[in-house]
Structure formats: structure tokens, C-alpha cells
Design a protein around this nucleic acid. Sequence first.
DNA 1: CCTCTCATGTAAGACGTTACATGATTCA
DNA 2: TGAATCATGTAACGTCTTACATGAGAGG
Lengths: 203, 203
Amino acid sequence: MSLKYSILGLLHYKPMHGYRVKEHIERNFGHMWSINYGQIYPNLKKMKAEGLISMREEVCKGEKGPPRKLYTITDAGKQVFQEWLAESPEGSMILRDPFLMRFVFFGFGEETRALEQIEEQLGVYEKQLARRYSNLNRWEHSGPYVKLMADLGVRMNEVFLDWLKDAHQELLSSSREEAAAHAQAGLVEHESMPCAQEAEDDI
Amino acid sequence: MSLKYSILGLLHYKPMHGYRVKEHIERNFGHMWSINYGQIYPNLKKMKAEGLISMREEVCKGEKGPPRKLYTITDAGKQVFQEWLAESPEGSMILRDPFLMRFVFFGFGEETRALEQIEEQLGVYEKQLARRYSNLNRWEHSGPYVKLMADLGVRMNEVFLDWLKDAHQELLSSSREEAAAHAQAGLVEHESMPCAQEAEDDI
DNA sequence: CCTCTCATGTAAGACGTTACATGATTCA
DNA sequence: TGAATCATGTAACGTCTTACATGAGAGG
């Protein structure tokens, strides 16, 4: 349950209400984290019950909208957060990408469609890179960690774009070779093979 | 539900049983995808009920262990897979990393502990890079998509390692500056601030 | 008046994880 | 005999997503 700690982390900056928490996470980590109200509100409720945060209802007349519930981190919350922060993280990076999920299997589909999808991704990540650069500028004076984090986002985006371009290029040249050689090999047919699954373990 | 399509994809190579599916996914996408039997077996059952795969129970005497259930993709399964493969992926990359999750908030913790965690990560990703290089070699002749995928893994790993080293370096030099200037600024205290949350939206 | 944004919340269901139960065979 | 590996499965629990319900105030 890392949302809990993300909220505790955010509340170190200033008290917030649920709606702001979502907004912040979306603006700052939107490319790697998405969150719904269905998670936030029950979590805030639970964390309040655990004494990690305290709540104050506010009806500010100068502002539009219904009353908000301002949550502030408590000393107990700060302590729990410190313990979590110092822990060595278990498990490593998990990267889930609906495009890459398909990419691995593009060998079983049409190459033209594969190329189209790569082009789409190029568009998406070129726009995202621009946003990440602006984040980097915005956080230029926000302390080393936040700045470094934004820097990582830019670097990751850049290698991904480079890779997309290389992949596009390589597919074009290898399909030209194939066409020239007239050696279009179809999918290997797998017959029933009763007990021979161990033959070749690699894919 | 992408496990469904991953399984359909894997079954294009050859028929498999549940245990092998897990093994394959773990070996090949273990760094970005983890799967449990609690997901696999119910999924296989459901997919069989939907007619996407067919099952044959096998008791091979030459092999140890209990009888396995060999699953083969059906024509209906191939069609459903093709439709999914051609679809433009919705949503973009989601990167979840327990280390990075902490990293953003290291400003609220001890710097020495931050440096230690960065060093730990360096160790983890140096080992992983070696594994990814060997994957790249293993798949050198496995068709362009699989090869490119492995290449992306190597590149991503490399930028991450570079970034970790740079981060480590930058923290060391900036803390030396701080020490020299004797300008150790504590955490900004946030008073009750009744209705002034809009003051500064950035973190 | 209608729609948009701000704001809080719930309920149902999909998805994922952990832990356990079972049982055969291989190897020390 | 005991442990390890291969193999299938389920139950309980936790997390996440989707969709909906509510309601105030601002602006066209």
C-alpha cells in the first residue's frame, strides 16, 4: 500500500484535501501513477482512524464549491512515514505498458500495423517529452531529489524515443531485405506433439 | 486484462501448461511483470470456457511429476488475439518502483540513508544489466521484435544506472556545499493557515 | 437555465497477491 | 526418509477501476 505513504509524503509540504491530492499526483507523477477518488477518500478515512492524519472541515466563503476537508499530518504520521522512508525498498521496477505488451508479439501480426503503432507512440512521447522538460524547469530550484526525479523522467523519455526511431528504422530495412530475397517465412506450425514440449525451451 | 493476451501470445509459439506459462513470463519479462498461479489457473479455465484455448490432459511416463494440462490456442483464440494486437494501445507507460517512490520524498529524510539506498540500487541494477545483456545475446536471432525488446531493456537499464551515479555524485557535492556554508535549512514549518491553501500550488 | 469546475463520497466488480493444500517423482 | 522440484489448484484478502450520486458556485 504505497498510496498511504505518498499521501503522508505530500502532506509534509502542506495540508491538503482529497481532491488536491489527486490533482497533485496526476500533475507530478501522472506518467507513472494514476489514482482515483475510489482510492483516495477511503484511504484518508482509514488514515485518520489510524491517527496518521487529522481533519478539519473548512467552509471558506471566498472560494467556490462545497466545504473541503483539510487533512494535516500528525506526529504519529510523520514517524510512520520516516520508518517507511528509511526501509530498503523490496522488489524492483515494474514497467507496464500496453504498447510494449503488444510489441513483443508483433511478429505474429502485420508489420504495417506495427509500424503505425510505433509512429503513434513517437507522437505521444514527443509531446510528453515537452511536458517533462517544462517540469524540469519548474522544479529547477525545488531541492535536489525532486529535480533529479524530473531529470530521470526526461532521460527515460529520451531513450524511449531514440529506441522507437531505431526500431522503426530497423523494421523498414529488414522488411526491404526480406522482400528482396523473396524469403517470406510464415509462422512455424506447431503440430500436436504429444510429449515433446521440452524439445526447445526458448521462444 | 492483459494476462489473457499474453497467454494467447505465448501459445502462438507452442502449446503450454500453466506452470510453463509462469516460468516463461518470469524468465522473459520478470523485470516488468510478475504473475502468480492464483491468476494463471483461473484465467486458463476461463479462456477454455470461452473457447479461446483447448486443453488436453497428458500423463507422460518419461517425465517426472503429475499429469499436466496442455493448452493449445484455437482459431477463435487466434482471431481474438489478432484483434487485440491491431488495436491502438490505450493509456501510456506506468512505471512503479518502490525505490523511486521513496526517492521523491528523500528531502524529508536523512541524506546518508538516501545515499545508502542509491548504492543498493546500483548493485541491483548492475546485476540486472548483466542478465539483460545475456538475454540480448540469447535472442540475437529471434526475430526483430523480441530482439528490439531486449535492446530496450538494456538501454533503459543503462540510463537508470547512469542516473543513479549522477544522483549520488550530485548529492555528495551539494551536501559539501551546504556544510561549507553552514546554511542547513530545516523543514519549512506549516502553521494552521486557515484558508490560505491556494497561496502556492507548486511543491 | 445549463454547463463546467470544484469537491466528497460509495458500491460493484475486476484484478492481483499471499498463503495454503495436494500429490507425484527425483535425488541425496 | 526427507527435501526439492514439478504441477495444479483454491480461498481470503487487498488493491484498483469504473460508474454513479450528490451538491455548491461560477460563467455563459
